[in-house]
Design a protein around this nucleic acid. Structure first.
Length: 197
DNA sequence: GCATTAACAGCTA
DNA sequence: TAGCTGTTAATGC
């Protein structure tokens, strides 16, 4: 989206994180722009007794939590690394200056934030009203939407059952039961525990 | 570590 | 009351 060189020349610094490290957390003020160059993070909240809800998973070449740089609101989510992650971090003020000097960056920025809003809308309504299978299907459809190859079972889901549960608000067992029944219905394939959609 | 299964309890259509 | 989902716990991969 934004080139690494441009960020570096504006004063961005590389920061490294490993699995489970917090990049920013709930109720913190947003002081920085973050851009992932390597790895994956999750945006989540921790609910009671160690449970979590995942609002989204963000991978490389994407920015994280950028919308919070345009409001005075504090983060309502945690950002947690889920493998080895490298980000470019740029102070908010420098980021806003960078945008000011490079107005051509806006379309891509707005496009990514709009994608996020779309995801929130889709997941919000399915999680609120649908059956477990439909919740999982809505999420898989969203993943598939962003793939070039739309053919059947071409997309491997690189997420654990537990992560799928935290994304859909279901228990792991329900996720397991649902995907098995979806396999029976020919909606997806399971090959040595990996899901193909 | 993560996935699966089973037995059980609680909810609801 | 039958069916579904979450909880717990044991077992498998």
């Amino acid at each position: 989206m934004i080139s690494e060189n441009l960020l570096l020349s504006s004063g961005a610094e590389y920061k490294s994180y490993s699995n489970e490290d917090l990049i920013f957390s709930e109720n913190e003020t947003a002081y920085n722009f973050y851009y992932i160059t390597e790895g994956k993070v999750k945006l989540n909240n921790y609910i009671e007794n160690g449970k979590e809800f995942i609002h989204g998973i963000v991978t490389n070449n994407m920015s994280i939590g950028t919308s919070y740089l345009f409001t005075e609101k504090k983060y309502s989510i945690n950002c947690v690394a889920i493998n080895d992650v490298k980000v470019l971090r740029l102070p908010k003020i420098s980021f806003l200056e960078l945008l000011n000097e490079n107005q051509n960056l806006y379309p891509a920025l707005i496009s990514q934030m709009s994608e996020n809003i779309h995801y929130q809308f889709v997941m919000m309504q399915t999680i609120a009203v649908k059956s477990p299978e439909k919740k999982i299907k809505a999420f898989l459809d969203y993943l598939k939407e962003n793939e070039q190859n739309k053919s059947e079972f071409s997309l491997q889901i690189h997420l654990t059952r537990q992560q799928l549960a935290s994304i859909t608000g279901l228990s792991v067992e329900t996720v397991i039961r649902a995907i098995k029944s979806m396999e029976k219905g020919g909606l997806l394939k399971i090959q040595n525990r990996k899901i193909f959609y």
